[in-house]
Each structure stands twice: as structure tokens, then as C-alpha cells.
Amino acid sequence: MKFKIFVDGQYGTTGLKIHEMLENRDEIELLTINEEDKKNDEVKKELLNSADLVFLCLPDAASKHSVSLITNDKVKVIDASTAHRTNPQWVYGIPELTSTQREKIKNSNRVCVPGCHASGLIIAMKPLLEKGILPKSQKLICHSITGFSGGGSTMIDDYENGSFDEVGGQRPYALALNHKHLPEMKYMLDLQEAPLFTPSIGNFKQGMLVMSYLVKKDFLFSASRDELINLYKDYYKGENFINIIEENEQYLDNGLLNPMKCNNTNTLEISVYENETDMVVISRLDNLGKGASGAAVQCMNIMLGIDEKQGLKSK
């Protein structure tokens, strides 16, 4: 038996990557749409309702419209947009989030894939909030740097064909402090207020670092780096795609942290650094892997009862 999969938005960055990841899998039959028909509701509705599972790789409004076209209640949907990430009727697509999240994904017909920045922050901060080291009133402070591939075809063209002087080395954005991933960060971590978060684009294609800054005096009880490492190891014990770094000296390259070392995998690595008063927790992941298409395929595997690791690489 083959599962029929339709990627709505197959010509965008995330959709193309999902297609690439699925096209050689024996148990998958990819349904495709011609580019000239991608806005034809009649053609699209037929594909949406004949699939076992649909990926939505579209802007928010278009994702909601596609969902409205689905009348077959057996069709499973994975949405890669921000449209449904704070909707309680949709399951958030981080299987490692809690001990029950994987089962929720398995039993749901509606799953939303997290944003790449949100994945890095949430996976790093969830254990600290769940175990009571940080209060839910904490104002989290986070910065990230990500590869330009997440910015779509125009941005990719700017970086690949523009001069370094034009695009620069690192460019912060969303400087009105209203990034679109903030609502899901607040919602999924059950915070009283959204984090203070600034993202930036780096002059590299894939990979990212999400850096969360902590002040030790804000902890509800004292905890050292080693204690946090042990907490993370226990919380994510047995997870194939979450790696906890124990030895920073072996992890860094002459004291530097390369954002691209998880590229082309579905792995997210957590490392922790400290001085006497402060800590920084850093998530390293592929923005197109665990940050987007890889996370979507991982959720698909769970929803279809396939081995969760099928078609995905771990570091």
C-alpha cells in the first residue's frame, strides 16, 4: 500500500524540500499539480481530497483557504505556515515537547509545523519551565541567526547573485520586535508575556543558531550548567533527533560555534555556556531540516504509522 501525499505549495522552498525528501520513498505516492493550476480551486480541491495526507506550504491566508476546500474527513493535514500554530484544535508538531505530544500528533488529523526560530527556543526552554527552574512570568530574551534559504526565492537570489557589500554578513530584521513566531513561543511555553526576540539573516544558505540568555538570579532555585545538562539529558532521553552537548571544548571550533554543522539532518543540538552570573543556551539546527521540512516529514511519519526516523538523517 502506498500513501498518497499532496504538497500544496510544492514550488516554494519548504515544499520543494519536502518533495525532494519524499520522491524516492517506496511507500509514498506524490500527487502533483502543474504550476499554472496552483491557484485553480477546482484542480486543487480534487487533489486535496484524494490524498491521505496534505502538506500546506503556503502563506497563512492561502493555507486557511486550502483547509476550507477539504471535505474528506479522512485527509490528514500538516500546515507549515503560521496560520494554526496557536489554534488549540491543531496539534503542535514537536514530538519531543512532552511525554504525550507524540501520541497527540499520531492521533490527530491537523498538525502545524513550528517555526524554525520557535523550535530552537521552545525545545531549549521547555524543560526549564516544566521543571520549575524558570517561572512562567520570565521575560525570555533570545536572538537567532539563520541561513538565507528560509527567506524564499527572492532573498536566495539576492544572496547568491548579489555582492557581499550589498547583502552584508549578518542582518537583523523584525526590529519592531513583532516577529511572527512570537505568538507560538508564548503560547507553547505558556508564558505570561512573549519573549524579547530578535532574529537575523546570515550570509550562508542553511543552518541556524537560536541563543537564549538567562540570568542565574532569576532562577527559582540554583542550578549550574552541569545540572542543566543533566536535566536536558533526562528530559530528552531516548530522542533520536535531540542531542545534548556535554563537552563544550570538543564541540566548539577554536571557541567558535558553526551554525551549519547540523545541515541536511533533522537533528537539533543543545549546548549551554555560563559564567558566575549568567548562562546562554544555544540550539543548533538546520532551518530547512528540524526547522521546517524535516520536522514536517517527522510528523508525517508519526501520523501515518511509519517509523519516525524513515527518510530522515540524524547527526
Rank of each mutant, 00 (worst) to 15 (best):
I145H: 00
I28V: 13
E166L: 14
E274Y: 03
V54S: 05
C57D: 14
K216L: 12
I78C: 06
G9A: 11
M185H: 03
E160P: 10
Q89H: 15
N24C: 08
K290N: 11
P195A: 06
L47Q: 04
Y273F: 15
M125K: 06
D286I: 01
V210S: 11
E276F: 07
L175M: 15
A61C: 04
K180I: 09
I244N: 07
V67P: 02
K64L: 14
N161D: 13
P114H: 15
G120C: 13
I33K: 02
I94F: 06
I123L: 14
P95N: 11
L16G: 09
Q192G: 12
L177F: 12
C116Q: 13
K39D: 13
V281M: 13
G169C: 10
L134W: 00
I70R: 02
L256N: 10
Y251V: 08
M208Y: 08
F197A: 04
E276M: 08
N263D: 13
C299P: 04
D52G: 10
D165W: 06
I244K: 06
K313I: 14
G132P: 01
S108T: 08
K315G: 11
I122W: 01
G115N: 04
N24T: 12
V113C: 15
C57P: 14
K45Q: 09
A223R: 00
M211A: 12
M260Y: 05
G291M: 12
F204Q: 10
C57S: 15
N248Y: 12
K2M: 14
E27C: 03
G169H: 09
L121R: 01
E269P: 04
N87H: 12
